[in-house]
Design a protein around this nucleic acid. Structure first.
Length: 189
DNA sequence: CCCTGATTCGC
DNA sequence: GCGAATCAGG
């Protein structure tokens, strides 16, 4: 694949929108995110608002003299929120806030303690001891997103264990999050 | 581990 | 000009 004019257009557009290089590469097809980043630099439309760079010069085989002219500075750069990040966390928000509009995919409701089987509950407690205590940033597609603790305090983190493929939680937490109807049906309260 | 962008340098 | 490999970091 080559950088035809229209492909460059797509690149420019998406980059301008704050899309990540990998997203752009996926969209274009036939190129890797490296290719996209390389092109972005060659086009000189690097510095996007926000993204901190790694200016320090690494000299392995010192050669390249001066290079980056360091172009236009953006005077009016309104904080550009990343349009896309893993953020299905709305449903787990602090009790401090009231009704939060759950944008996007609604997550399974937080189970009330009294609806969870004793076994599952025990196993969850067990798992929470070995939780990786990930911060928000460290959550990915395949880490357990089960919140532990009170978001309003320091005592808050995410389970972070390996999540079940396609599921947002690890095995133990999937167990309490997705209960078969049958077991729910006649659970006395 | 997943991801991000930045840089280098052989092609 | 291109982009894989590598780096640096969240």
């Amino acid at each position: 694949m080559s950088w035809t004019e229209d492909r460059v257009e797509v690149l420019k557009k998406m980059w301008g929108e704050g899309q990540s290089a990998s997203q752009i590469a996926k969209e274009l097809g036939g190129v890797t995110r490296n290719a996209v980043i390389g092109k972005v630099h060659r086009l000189g439309l690097s510095n996007r608002a926000g993204t901190a760079a790694k200016p320090a010069a690494k000299d392995k085989a010192a050669a390249k003299p001066a290079a980056k002219p360091k172009v236009a500075a953006k005077p009016s750069a309104p904080a550009k929120p990343r349009p896309e990040t893993t953020s299905p966390l709305a449903a787990h928000q602090s009790p401090a806030r009231k009704a939060i509009i759950p944008a996007g995919q609604p997550l399974p409701p937080q189970p009330s303690a009294n609806e969870i089987s004793p076994e599952a509950l025990a196993s969850v407690r067990e798992v929470e001891k070995t939780a990786k205590k990930l911060s928000l940033m460290e959550l990915t597609e395949r880490t357990c997103k089960w919140p532990i603790g009170d978001p309003a305090t320091e005592e808050f983190w995410f389970c972070g264990l390996a999540s079940q493929p396609g599921k947002p939680y690890c095995e133990a937490h999937v167990g309490v999050a997705f209960q078969p109807m049958s077991s729910r049906r006649d659970r006395r309260r």
